[in-house]
Every structure is written in structure tokens, then in C-alpha cells.
Amino acid sequence: MSLLGVGLLKGMVETARNFVGSYHDPSRLTTVQYPEERLAPKENARNFPFLVYDGADSERGLRCVACKICEKECPPQCIYIVLERDAKGKPQKHPKVFDIDISVCMSCQICVEVCPFDAIKMDTEFELSRADRFGGLLLRKPDLAKPNVHYHRLHPTEAAEVDARLAAEQAKAAAKAKPASPPPPKPAAPTIAPAA
């Protein structure tokens, strides 16, 4: 047993070292001054889903075909899809309604994993507080649709893989349908904007 109080003093020295270190040692400074300062975004980060569209038209360019797999697999059942039908009632491969209730969504990414068309991806937007608890947190199709460029900005590696795969599939389908025709235009190769 050492002298009474030595342990206390050792602790005090440690506290003092931490205090001084917090001014210059980066490994002791893990916090940033949000909102003025922000952490560098991580590529794998995820928050809430969004819908990817190719080209410029956010309505016709949607990759979603309203197959409702994500609606079925979503653990908290926060996705709501209605298939679009034309005047004769023939189903179009397009969602008429696509809602996600992000007050229910738990950011698990299962919708992204099960989607066979790479149509739904995870956003990283987190500043989503609203005055209206129910309506404000119910994202409709126009809120959800984001261009492919956005996807490339958030997850560049993954998006490049997806584009390559989709292009390959399209080329294959085109080759099957009409071997002589030129390959369809690739999805717009976006310029990767530096993450702000």
C-alpha cells in the first residue's frame, strides 16, 4: 500500500496532461464545431433512402419499376408504392406513388440490398427537422427522386460499380434484341463534385 493520496495525485497529473493536450494534440480533439465545421463525409454512410433517376427528367428517368420488393421487405413497413396504370388499366413499369415515411424508417438499408434494379439508394442528408411531425416527415416521390450525379457524389466507388453493371446489362439486352444496333447511351457519366 502506497502513501495515502499518491493515487489521487497521479490522477490529477493525468487530468492536467489531458487538459494541456486538448489544446494541441489532435488525438485528444475528436469534436468539431458543428455547424460551422463539419466532419468529412464517409463513403459508406447512410441515413434515409432516395430514388435514383438517370438523365434529366426526374419523373421518366426513375429506375424504379414499382415491383414492391422493398415495400415487402422493409422491416418497419415505411415504404408505400402504387403502381402506375395507363388508361386501359395496363400496368406501366413506373411508380405512381412512392412515399417513404422517414419518421418510421430506421435506416437499415435493407431496401437498397433487395432492390434488383439499383433504383433505391441511401442518402446521407441528416438535417431533416421539420415543424410538422407527420406530413413533413413523409417524403413523396418528388422529394425522393435524386439524380445519378447525387449518388456519385455520395458513394463514388459504389456508384461507379453500379453504372458499370447497368451498362453491361443494357448492352447485353441490346445485343440480344438487335445485334446490329449500337449500344444504348451509357448513364450520364457525372463529374464527381468535391464533397462540400
Partner: peptide, 29 residues
């Protein structure tokens, strides 16, 4: 809270690792 804050400082570094790997800091799935 002094030791707790020191512990949370280290936890922060590990949570950053989790975020880089899994996409989420706590609900990793």
C-alpha cells in the same frame, strides 16, 4: 464525468470506424 468524457473520446474513434465500415455509427446492421 471526467473519465466518462475520456472514454467517450475513444469511443468516438471506434464509432468513426464503424461508420466507415457499416455506414452507421450505432445501428450497424
Amino acid at each position: 464525468g471526467t473519465p466518462l468524457m475520456y472514454a467517450f473520446r475513444e469511443r468516438e474513434k471506434i464509432l468513426d470506424l464503424f461508420e466507415a465500415l457499416t455506414g452507421a455509427r450505432m445501428m450497424c446492421n
